[in-house]
Write a protein that binds this DNA or RNA. Structure first.
Lengths: 200, 200
DNA sequence: ATAAATACTGTATATAATTACAGTTATGAA
DNA sequence: TTCATAACTGTAATTATATACAGTATTTAT
């Protein structure tokens, strides 16, 4: 996303939703009607701006000829996470996977490529992509993506209180990780809602 | 699919492909041009027939207003397979999952819901959905869906010859299955190309 | 300070697209 | 045999849609 304005983001998301719900993109009039524009040209201008910023493409003379670009419509796959920055920082995005609403019960904000074997007892293997939802409140029993002093880890959350959080690796060779949120910097990046593995 | 004719299937697949490639459905003229129709009404007739058969929906007065029905555009999930019939028989389809081209390296013909724990050492657990491609030739080392005397099983193919086929469960508690294709009825239903797990 | 970008209104028009009506030919079912 | 379905051709008309041009006001970079 090349710095879309607030309005442009709204319009882009509307187009995305329409495609998702109807199976085809909206017309200039439909966009205008939705946002209260009194002229279809307002939508036209927005589309041109969105095209210029590379998030979609317009087919000339073609009704509903709006094509979303791969990166803008897909879900990011996070590989290694650079220290310091947010998990969804541009440099952590390895690629994007076409979005598919309805493939899992919950929405997916990003995929995380699994490193190591700490979760093999629940069938999460190295290089699997786990689907993460950022907005589901973490709860005990869930597999979560946590960040302890900047380091990203995937574990089962078994206890959560003000002074103690326990993260359990699902592998008998590993021991539970105890964190004191008052001492250590602990952030939950999201809950694991699914898994995707590609046998290629 | 309610018994589409050959021509109807061709047209339906074309529409599906267009949506997949462009992000929006074709017009009557575009369909006509592709199939060599000299009148857009030929496409109109086909669309009406496809609507009547329930595989798509048409929005009146709306350009490119073609919406594929869930079942027709989705990928079937196979639960228990009834004896005798083909694996993709209507009665075996538990539900359908929206298709997501590009989510895996290979195409997906159907998902199979995994029963049992015979493949847990490679991270395939009960109730996981494994993505199957019917057309990739089975080869040793691949995880395959085989049918031995009508019974469906998922195993790693470790040997294949005219007189002996070895299927290996990926679980140390189970032993290899040896099949003589000359004696037993052995069919390969496809190769496993991916895995999908929903943490709901 | 000034140009460029953003976010629109308002009008207009060529053309893209849907879709009805009237036929033709072939095929399979009642 | 006769009727329904399938698979088209051909014409035509309404309307849906893209999109240019001319403005205005505000915000944001340079």
């Amino acid at each position: 996303m090349k710095n879309l304005t607030k309005r442009q983001t709204e319009i882009f998301n509307y187009i995305k939703d329409e495609i998702e719900n109807n199976g085809y993109p909206p017309t200039r009039s439909e966009i205008s009607k939705t946002f209260g524009f009194k002229s279809p040209n307002a939508a036209e201008d927005h589309l041109k701006a969105l095209k210029k910023k590379g998030v979609l493409d317009l087919a000339a003379g073609t009704s509903r000829g709006i094509t979303l670009s791969n990166q803008s419509s897909g879900i990011p796959v996070i590989g290694l996470v650079s220290a310091g920055g947010p998990i969804l920082a541009e440099e952590n995005i390895e690629k994007t996977i076409p979005n598919n609403p309805g493939i899992l019960s919950h929405g997916i904000d990003f995929y995380l490529k699994v490193k190591g074997d700490s979760m093999i007892d629940v069938g999460i293997f190295e290089n699997d992509l786990i689907a993460i939802n950022k907005n589901i409140p973490v709860k005990t029993g869930s597999i979560v993506v946590a960040r302890i002093n900047d380091e990203v880890t995937v574990k089962t959350l078994t206890k959560i209180s003000d002074s103690q959080v326990i993260l359990r690796p699902e592998n008998s060779s590993y021991s539970d990780i105890e964190v004191n949120p008052k001492k250590d910097n602990l952030i939950f990046e999201g809950t694991c809602v699914g898994l995707l593995r590609d046998f290629s």
